[in-house]
């Protein structure tokens, strides 16, 4: 019973939040890794791309809410998601047409594109703040919990409760679907394979008759979808604030690099590695250990390894350790 309680507490405060957060990071890192693999640069504007897509979702959600349209127990945002993806796709395609394409024609070195993406980051950041403002926005609605603490306790008769929020459930389910579709697309379809081929060897792809502009177009479309989904899930689970999304850049980059930049599988693994380490290291283990350890050995302190404010530090230290021992990340060689 004691161990079961310990496990319930662990699930409630560590496993479930980390899985949800890991899914969000993984989706974000997938976008970064796709751009890195195919356009060959790290997109500093990715956090703000996520913010923009999410902003559209928030606005459409509000519109639907004002019309009285909803999904019952599910958040209305899911209904608004396609509009967000479309809006985000329009923005990134416009950006590509007006900004990035010029540099492709010039055969610009990727590092120039990195600097260009800084400019895009400023613009998108300004745009989002301009439209929706810099403050927190609430847009989650519907049922709050799939399983609430009280129901769980009643069902199991345990001392400790377990809550699964709707947003957490939706996050995991959506992430699994999105990742499955993405992998099917990349590995099974002609277009997906041509994207991988282009990422691997541009010249040979050209010689094989693969049209780079088409590859780039598909890449941006996928990235827009991934960014919007990741941003919306994060926003539902936590909150939507433009600056927070900008700050997500570090854990997302860390996840992509830990997994091995350019590797979709790595991005997912990296997302979960970062999320789990952030949550476990900043969690106060007192309660779990109190149940798990025999009488008399219970800890007196909080047993928190680091304060929550250091979660960035955790992603970073993991990143450094991985880079020191495996400079190419956990999954190397398998490029997009």
């Amino acid at each position: 019973m004691e161990l079961l309680n310990a496990f319930v507490v662990l699930s409630n405060f560590v496993l479930i939040p980390a899985i949800a957060y890991g899914s969000q990071l993984a989706l974000g890192a997938l976008g970064v890794t796709l751009i890195y693999g195919i356009l060959r640069f790290s997109n500093f504007a990715h956090g703000d791309t996520m913010a923009f897509g999410t902003m559209v979702v928030v606005l459409v959600t509000w519109l639907f809410q004002s019309w009285g349209i909803n999904l019952g127990p599910l958040p209305t945002a899911l209904l608004a998601l396609p509009f967000g993806i479309a809006g985000c796709a329009a923005l990134v395609l416009l950006t590509d047409r007006m900004v990035y394409r010029f540099y492709r024609v010039q055969k610009a070195k990727p590092v120039i594109l990195v600097i260009v993406s800084m400019g895009v980051m400023f613009i998108m950041n300004g745009l989002v703040r301009f439209i929706i403002g810099p403050d927190d926005q609430q847009f989650a609605d519907g049922e709050r919990f799939i399983v609430s603490v009280r129901t769980f306790k009643k069902l199991t008769g345990l001392d400790e409760g377990l809550a699964i929020r709707t947003t957490q459930g939706i996050t995991v389910v959506t992430a699994v679907i999105v990742v499955a579709v993405l992998f099917w697309f990349l590995n099974r379809t002609r277009t997906g394979k041509s994207m991988r081929a282009y990422s691997d060897n541009e010249d040979l792809a050209l010689l094989s008759g693969i049209n780079p502009e088409r590859v780039v177009l598909y890449t941006w479309l996928i990235v827009a979808a991934l960014a919007t989904v990741a941003g919306t899930l994060y926003g539902l689970d936590k909150t939507f604030k433009p600056f927070t999304f900008f700050q997500l850049l570090l854990p997302i980059f860390a996840a992509a690099i830990v997994g091995g930049l350019g590797s979709p599988l790595g991005a997912i693994a990296g997302g979960f590695v970062i999320a789990f380490s952030e949550v476990t290291v900043t969690y106060a283990w007192k309660k779990v250990l109190g149940y798990a350890l025999p009488e008399g050995l219970e800890p007196t302190g909080l047993v928190q390894l680091l304060s929550t404010d250091y979660k960035f530090a955790v992603s970073f230290v993991i990143l450094l350790v991985v880079l020191l021992f495996r400079p190419t990340g956990l999954f190397k060689g398998k490029s997009v």
Binding site: V99, I115, G119, V120, I123, N125, G126, R129
Partner: peptide
């Protein structure tokens, strides 16, 4: 101002 900085850089 953020918007403008981005535009100038680009």
């Amino acid at each position: 101002r953020l918007l403008t900085m981005g535009v100038i850089l680009l």
